[in-house]
Design a protein around this nucleic acid. Structure first.
Lengths: 248, 248
DNA sequence: TCGTACCGGTAAACGCCGTTTACTAGCGGT
DNA sequence: ACCGCTAGTAAACGGCGTTTACCGGTACGA
């Protein structure tokens, strides 16, 4: 006679178990933080022993790596919903930015894991998340598509190419080409001549400000008490679209 | 006869031992990351047993908390040196920004601990680091002093007070008052009428961009490969001073 | 001078943790 | 009927934070 609390109740396929593992890991992360994501705790919740998890992941770090990808994909999906509610490109940009902030504040642990932690020193570069097939991780793609649509529809006020330092041009041009590839994959036509280095640079700066503001808010590192951070965020967004020379 | 590797060789004062503890903790953090800062490892390095550390700190988390403060103070001291090498206020602002970047890149683990981790859920607000005696932590003070000197010496291009949303005014005014207190404590005289809400807002935005850029670089989260990040950083600084309407 | 209270430390233990090793029950294919 | 694979178990190792009980000095007051 087998014991009561056993695992062989019903035929769990490998995929199912894997999903359960990541689901519990995710829940532990959300509820009790990065430290609480423990192989033994996950196994316990699944009614399994810890070493069994090694049939699915080669180490805790390996599991965390896949977890990051899950999180990324989920955040991207959530963001995509927000964006598609809006028709005009500027509105989509704002929706993407607000959606990013909302997600980050609602999921601080996930945000930290994916967007604000040192990459394990394994790979040579920090940029393994760029150039998986075409472009970037699913999350980055969302932003790039939004940028692409905006660019196709509107003229932006951006620095002249002469104003961007020579040492940056190759990088920015690479970014430009990446973005064009994504756009054409997304069925967006864009006039190459309007897509200058200055446009690449401006997009980069938008990301710097968005990321900075969100990260500061998540980590509570503003130099003053902000009683209504949403207002501050919207003001920054307004500055952003103004600096880009956008009007609906 | 006592064993060879014992601790009672020479009279270590309590302060000395405490410094050694923090020193080893610091070294472990730098060399092997947050995870490696282990009470047992620290104790081992000091030729002591782990429970002895509880005579100095009530828990590992308590030690980490003090460690954060040490790091903050050290970073501030390092930054102060950079700043005092320069005479003019604009140069000091640039030196502070570049110093912050250099420190963050040279000490990613410390940077993460102090500037990019979720505050433990203990205190009610995230802002315990504001308003210890007057103002902020030693690190924040440095920036505030630099800002004060700049403000006393130069006119800034900032948004009109009417452009800052009503909901932000109380917060920004609090920041203004804090900064004026720090400035007067630092012996800087400033015309109150030139220190508008727009000035507070502009300073906040400078911090957003600086923090965003540095954090992106430390975490490798730029959306493109940046072959010479220093150039990108300097370009952003140039934009910053241009946006503030500064010229030497 | 003698107690005594405290201070900084030790030893042992508890219950976690990741990970490795050896083993096994059950299943699919031949 | 057997073989081999898969997904699991049990036991163990060493490391971790933390608690408890104990202990040798040293400072200090009677």
């Amino acid at each position: 006679m087998t014991e009561a609390t056993r695992r062989d109740r019903g035929p769990h396929g490998r995929e199912d178990t894997d999903r359960e593992i990541r689901g519990r890991a995710r829940a532990l992360l959300v509820e009790h933080g990065h430290q609480a994501v423990t192989l033994r705790a996950i196994a316990r919740d699944l009614g399994i022993t810890a070493p069994a998890l090694y049939r699915y992941y080669s180490s805790r770090e390996d599991l965390m790596h896949h977890l990051r990808q899950d999180i990324c994909a989920d955040a991207a999906a959530e963001l995509a919903v927000d964006i598609e509610k809006v028709a005009d490109p500027i509105g989509q940009l704002l929706a993407a930015c607000r959606g990013f902030r909302r997600w980050a504040l609602a999921h601080p642990q996930e945000f930290t894991l994916v967007f604000a932690s040192l990459m394990e020193v394994q790979g040579k570069s920090k940029l393994d998340w760029i150039d998986e097939d075409l472009g970037a991780d699913p999350f980055g793609r969302i932003f790039l598509v939004v940028a692409g649509r905006l660019l196709a529809a509107q003229d932006l006020t951006v620095p002249a190419d002469d104003d961007v330092p020579a040492e940056l041009r190759a990088d920015l041009d690479g970014f430009r080409r990446l973005l064009m590839k994504i756009m054409s994959a997304d069925g967006i036509a864009v006039d190459e001549r309007r897509f200058t280095l200055g446009v690449s640079y401006a997009m980069l700066q938008v990301w710097v400000r968005l990321y900075g503001q969100v990260t500061l808010e998540v980590f509570g590192r503003f130099p003053l008490a902000v009683s209504d951070p949403a207002v501050l965020f919207d003001k920054m967004l307004a500055d952003l679209v103004a600096d880009l020379g956008l009007t609906r």
